[in-house]
Design a protein around this nucleic acid. Sequence first.
RNA 1: GCCCCCAUCGUCCAGCGGCCUAGGACACCUGCCUUUCACGCAGGUAACACGGGUUCGAAUCCCGUUGGGGGUACCA
Length: 472
Amino acid sequence: MSSPVRVRFAPSPTGFLHVGSGHSALANWMVARQTGGEFLLRIEDTDAERNRPELVDNVLEMLEWLGLTWDGTPVHQSARGELYADAAQTLVAAGAVYFCDCTGEQVQARNKESGGKPGYDGHCRDRGLVAGPGRAARFRTPDEGRTGWTDLVRGDVTFANADIEDFVVLRGSGAPMFLLANAFDDADMGITHVIRGEDHVNSTPKYLLLLDALGLSRPTAFAHMPLLVNESRKKLSKRRDDVSMSDYRDRGYLPEAMVNYLALLGWGPADGVEVRPISEIVDLYRLEDVNASPAFFDQKKLSFVNAEHIRALPTDEFQARAIPFLTLGDPAREALATLAVEAQERVRTLAEVEPMIEFLIVDEPTVDEASWTKAITKGRNVVEMLDASIARLEALDADQWIPAPIQEAIGAAALDAGLVNAEGKPQLSKAQGPVRVALTGRTVGLPLWESITVLGRERTLSRLRATRGRLE
RNA sequence: GCCCCCAUCGUCCAGCGGCCUAGGACACCUGCCUUUCACGCAGGUAACACGGGUUCGAAUCCCGUUGGGGGUACCA
């Protein structure tokens, strides 16, 4: 696929941008960029009832955040009613549609009576109803033959026309339905490749039949992407799954990590290098290589990819990106500035930064119970270690309040406290436990010597004394 | 129910008839490194759903079974 394609992402503003939609949008965008083609946006807001215009902002904002820049101005279907009305008129003139006044209840009732199969039963097919208020226009699908296409992801897919129900193209209100607007616009916008989720496979024959009846040409290619599923292998749903793109952004995921991970769902680079810049993926990506089976959206792997991208950032860039996630103001920024390098290689998301440096900001670090038990209650020579640490650190001059002397002081304190290994060296791993808990409230955290340096003499000593005091 | 699609480690990918005693990544476990954690390094557990074909030869092709998913609206 080297000639320029013209693709589109056509979200319906009924919810926040979903990671599944992002997956499809990304595929469209990559193929457009790879071929020097165009990536267009079309807002499918033909359903006035469900439509929530303010959600369009979220969709556009998230696409921008992901870096999926589009070409031209987004098309809004709500502003193109006349075009669809004309298209419908073409269908009426050609006898491709008929009018129907059945209500949903009536159709269901008849279906129930005749064996319970869903879909329209063709009740009004030959009633010769003319257009009128409350009467929907239904497409008269062929009774014989098959309709199909060659899908870039799935190969040949065909449906027996007899299995395709007479679907509505125009509501009783005169408003167009999805299929009419969707198929018409793809042709009108000159879309060459229709790339969308697998959930559209079943409507594709209707789409094709419609284009044929309209005398419009079919897109040159279709690609139905695998669905993204949850742990129970069901399609990701707004209700029960974590699918809002903005939530991931707000939880500290990097856009470059998100697009990297999304690209890996249903596809993999031939060289096996999974974590890489999207620009490289754009060059390697082939719709023909995309898997047709559903892919599990694995947050653990997303986190891994995110951590890799965080570590790859220049430190000042990491700081800049982390700042919006700080809630504790200037002190938090200052703390981050001093320990950015150390924090950067430990966090998996930007939201994890602040908890890591929080001990520098709050007056009293929150004591983690399990940590206290492990390092203080069950620790060895804890009282001795705390006393010795206080003494050794107090002895340090102001200009020695830097990592190396601090490490020596703690080492000496360990010897004082009897925490000695077989070679007579201090058991630093044991020795630092009580000190770390006294200073940060936890047994795990940033490197201690650096933390003590930044914490400062006064706070370090007072926290050590306070903890020592609790052990009287 | 009917229609469509899918089927390799727990998960995501590689494999496109012999190079497969099936490879990589995430996760998990072990060890090393190490002031904790993380990183890094070295290992480990773990899969071709089943049954028939085709072929000298099948994870790879065909058929069936089973399993899973999607669709089945005057939603998109």
